[in-house]
Design a protein around this nucleic acid. Structure first.
Length: 592
DNA sequence: GTGAAGGGCCAC
DNA sequence: AAACGTGGCCCTTCAC
């Protein structure tokens, strides 16, 4: 593919280039950098293409003359990038926007992201790849050579082929967008795409902001866990070795407590009826009768804490900022949920001992806001169940209200046990729980579990009908959608009962989990716009929770804005029941 | 030594 | 007879 390009190295050239680019509604946009991390390397090239001609801006020549963030010479470029009316097409725009934000001091607005679009269109197909080369091949049939992607972009003089490669990557985005836009339209994914595209900048900023973790407090916490772990390991070792044949004369044989195999053998020797899998929920009932099993579960808990949430997380602290900048994948799950890694800030134990280590630095505050029972409210909305809605509208404790209805007692007479049953079912049905699992987790018998579930669905008939219809539909259509029309395709063998059952549960869960993700994404965009120009910074998100850090003086104002953004986002999708957000102003990531 | 798979547990 | 959805990270095991 021939590319017509021009290299820009000075202010005059840049002004002219931006004037030319102004005439195009869509611009292909790409960057080349010397590193992957904007805190480490330099932004070298910015490529902008109107499809006919590609402008390649070599920032090295600008950086030589001063600070890129404030340099007036770059004003036309900043303006163009942040103008939301001119659409910038980029592949994984989060990457480019982080560099532009951090090193040019500009927001990227008006995004069309071919990476996110590809994920939306593939609708959860795990086999599809989403690299630019794969996406270009799939949608336009063009072969892309990406070998120069990892070439040295810090050279004082870039080669002709490097520049040409850079220009071509930007140019190809225009025909690619045309194909993808058509497909988004025919798949009815335009709304979901807009939701995703508008979320790119908030997430890019969040990653740049990072979350502050106090090292010393984390280490103190670790010491406590280490002691607990050593103790539990010792005790478990003692208990298990009682069942091992007194080993060799050469010494005691230690059991590797992390080895599934060895632990199972030891338990069997002790006469414990170990089930096929020894996952926590399977072992839980045995823990009452067998102290060894209880000890094993205790050991696993502390061992997990120490390995997954131990010293290693401290290595993620960026020296330049003293903060943790995790990677968030915007479409981390086919449902539309985010995933997070390096480290996964979405799975820090709820125990305040851990979360209290994430703090606001001196003079700052954390605002923690989470949706109250968002998935159940979505379920109320979708199912239109009269009694379910009533329980929310009444404004009292939801689980107690549900229990009151299903056990037919006055709200004040609901026993803790009844409330607990209702609560477990409320959560379980979102995942398609069955009677046997319900029996196992409550400790009641199979028959009683079946009866309780029958009572539950007898009370919430609309819910029952919705879940059945939802499950039926997904099996016949093999597609599930959220409120924004985000789509997930299900693949299963219709003759395999297990697969059909799995697909049904999947399809029931996806619209609910996915709509929750839709709402969060919408909230992030509204929040981003309402916090612009303030001291507030987004620092973490956990599915139904948003955490913002701001100057102490602006805490009240920020809390208000956060609550408003989340509520309005929720109300766009949930009309039949109130949307409730709990907000806390605090110095630490823990509720008061 | 390295990498993939299997099993387990953390979050929501 | 059925066996609760989405992720990431860690460990062991086993093959190369």
């Amino acid at each position: 593919m021939e590319v017509y390009f021009q290299v820009i190295t000075d202010a005059e050239g840049l002004q002219k280039a931006c004037d030319e680019l102004r005439n195009s509604e869509y611009l292909g946009f790409d960057t080349e950098t010397t590193e992957l991390d904007p805190y480490r390397g330099d932004l070298r090239l910015i490529q902008l293409s109107d499809g006919k001609k590609t402008q390649v801006i070599d920032l090295k020549f600008f950086a030589e003359r001063g600070d890129l963030r404030t340099m007036p010479d770059l004003a036309p470029l900043r303006e163009l990038l942040s103008d939301k009316k001119q659409i910038k097409i980029a592949h994984n725009a989060k990457f480019d926007s982080k560099w532009v934000r951090h090193q040019l001091g500009a927001e990227l607005n008006g995004v069309f992201d071919t990476f996110l679009a590809s994920q939306l269109i593939s609708a959860g197909d795990q086999d599809r790849r989403h690299s630019l080369a794969d996406v270009a091949q799939f949608f336009t049939g063009t072969e892309l050579d990406k070998t120069l992607q990892v070439s040295d972009w810090s050279l004082s003089e870039l080669s002709h082929s490097q520049i040409e490669y850079a220009a071509r990557d930007a140019a190809i985005l225009l025909p690619l967008r045309e194909q993808m836009a058509e497909r988004l339209k025919s798949d009815d994914l335009e709304k979901a795409a807009e939701l995703e595209f508008e979320c790119v900048m908030p997430i890019a900023e969040m990653e740049l902001n990072g979350f502050y973790l106090e090292k010393s407090r984390w280490r103190e916490q670790l010491e406590k866990v280490k002691v607990a772990q050593a103790k539990a390991a010792d005790e478990l070792q003692q208990m298990l070795s009682a069942g091992v044949a007194q080993a060799s004369l050469f010494g005691r044989s230690e059991i590797n407590l992390d080895s599934q195999q060895q632990v199972t053998d030891a338990l069997l020797n002790l006469g414990v009826p170990v089930p096929a899998t020894t996952r926590g929920w399977q072992l839980q009932p045995l823990a009452v009768e067998y102290p060894q099993v209880a000890k094993l579960l205790e050991y696993r808990g502390v061992a997990k804490s120490l390995t997954s949430f131990g010293e290693n997380i401290l290595e993620f602290i960026e020296p330049k900022t003293g903060r943790i900048h995790a990677d968030f994948r915007q479409i981390g799950a086919p449902t539309g949920r985010f995933s997070c890694s390096n480290p996964n800030l979405q799975q820090i134990p709820h125990d305040p001992q851990y979360r209290r280590c994430f703090i606001a630095p001196e003079g700052r505050k954390l605002i923690i806001a989470d949706y109250s029972q968002i998935e159940l409210r979505i379920l109320a909305e979708f199912s239109d169940d009269e009694n379910f809605i009533k329980a929310f509208v009444s404004g009292q404790d939801f689980h107690a209200s549900a229990a009151s209805q299903m056990f037919n007692v006055k709200p004040e007479d609901v026993s803790p046990e009844q409330r607990s049953f209702a609560k477990r079912l409320n959560f379980g049905i979102v995942y398609g729980i069955g009677a046997s699992r319900f029996a196992l987790m409550t400790g009641i018998g199979q028959t009683e579990a079946e009866n309780t579930m029958r009572q539950y669905f007898g009370t919430f008939r609309g819910l029952d009908a919705y879940l059945r219809e939802s499950g039926r539909k997904v099996v016949t259509e093999r597609i599930a959608r959220t409120a924004s029309n985000r789509m997930m395709r299900l693949r299963f063998d219709e003759n395999d009962r297990q697969q059909v059952g799995g697909a049904r549960r999947n399809g029931i869960n996806m619209p609910i989990q996915g709509t929750s993700a839709d709402i969060l994404k919408r909230a992030l965009r509204l929040l981003h716009d309402s916090l612009r120009g303030t001291s507030a910074e987004l620092v973490n998100i956990v599915h139904d929770e948003i955490i913002v850090e701001c100057d102490a003086a602006e805490a009240e104002l920020t809390a208000d804005k956060l609550e408003k953004a989340m509520c309005s986002a929720g109300k766009e999708y949930i009309k039949k029941v109130p949307v409730k957000v709990d907000v806390t102003i605090t110095g630490e990531w823990a509720k008061l």
